[in-house]
């Protein structure tokens, strides 16, 4: 059966993109990893509709899109709670939902977190680039043309037989708060930085600044007594690397980060906690805790 379910975007939302688990393996060519910011929530959404967990989902940021459904199928919404609704009625997150022809999916006020993930049962008709359907950080309109959702765009998904509904218990859903403890490991230049600066880094709260996006989160405030130990010759950086600019400004590199940089790499966020960070928005407060492997 080659029926399709179509998603008509009545409005695109603030920043709605198609993301999967990213394109790993091309950083040596300067190509960022991309992929869902909160990877676990993206996987869970796909699980709830019986799709390959590494497949594409919609990543929805703070202000969600309006979507009219053509055809029928199953969806699931995970991650940040952006007040999802179907036909104006609130719907539950973290469970399989049936949708019918003409249904309207919309979002309201952000309640918790920053990013929702919307999975749709079936085979997404999107063109991958370098093994991933994720929106490319550069030249997205050429390289991954359907991946940055535009007004009036139509997304086609090849119908697959529906599954018995699934749900994730509330206690197994990630807890999202505006105050987070983020675990970090010492980074490559950690041992070259003074105890005063390191003490400052671990003893205070940081606020996520407005200058934060899928490439990186700039944290408010500068580190005390920061002195770049020596010039770092351009070297690899990865999502989770916390760079400190020469002025003492910490920046957490996220999914769309470039693959090399020349700033001090102070610490690295534990991979699992990157999902937590992905759900933080400007104004949210975090604190770092040093752990060892």
């Amino acid at each position: 059966m080659a029926e399709k379910i179509r998603l008509h975007f009545v409005k695109p939302g603030l920043q709605t993109t198609i993301q999967d688990q990213g394109r790993v393996g091309y950083q040596g060519m300067g190509v960022p990893v991309n992929g869902a910011m909160d990877k676990a929530s993206a996987r869970t959404a796909n699980y709830l509709v019986g799709n390959d967990e590494n497949g594409p989902v919609l990543e929805i940021t703070l202000l969600g899109p309006g979507i009219r459904i053509e055809g029928e199928g199953q969806i699931a919404i995970t991650g940040g709670n952006l007040s999802p609704k179907v036909n104006g009625e609130s719907v539950d997150m973290y469970e399989t939902l049936d949708v019918e022809d003409g249904d309207m999916i919309s979002f309201g006020r952000p309640v918790t977190g920053c990013r929702s993930y919307l999975a749709v049962r079936g085979d997404w008709q999107v063109t991958p680039w370098l093994g991933s359907c994720s929106a490319s950080a550069t030249k997205a309109s050429e390289l991954t043309p359907q991946s940055v959702i535009q007004k009036e765009q139509v997304l086609e998904i090849e119908y697959e037989e529906l599954i018995p509904p699934l749900a994730i218990d509330e206690e197994e859903q990630p807890e999202l708060t505006a105050l987070n403890i983020i675990r970090v490991l010492p980074g490559p230049e950690f041992s070259l930085i003074s105890n005063l600066t390191i003490g400052d880094f671990f003893s205070r709260d940081f606020k996520v600044s407005n200058d934060s996006n899928r490439m990186g989160y700039k944290l408010e405030g500068k580190l005390a007594h920061f002195e770049s130990a020596r010039e770092v010759i351009s070297s690899g950086v990865i999502p989770g690397t916390i760079q400190v600019t020469n002025a003492g400004q910490p920046i957490v590199l996220m999914a769309d980060a470039q693959s090399s940089g020349g700033y001090t790499r102070l610490v690295n966020v534990v991979t699992e906690d990157l999902d937590k960070l992905a759900q933080m928005k400007p104004g949210d407060v975090l604190r770092f805790r040093l752990v060892s492997l």
């Binding site: 790993v24 393996g25 091309y26 950083q27 040596g28 010759i233 351009s234 070297s235 690899g236 990865i238």
Partner: peptide, 14 residues
């Protein structure tokens, strides 16, 4: 090994 980033005088290995 999932990725490498060769640079001037360093190699990152994922």
């Amino acid at each position: 090994v999932t990725f490498t980033i060769p640079a001037y005088c360093s190699l990152t290995v994922g």
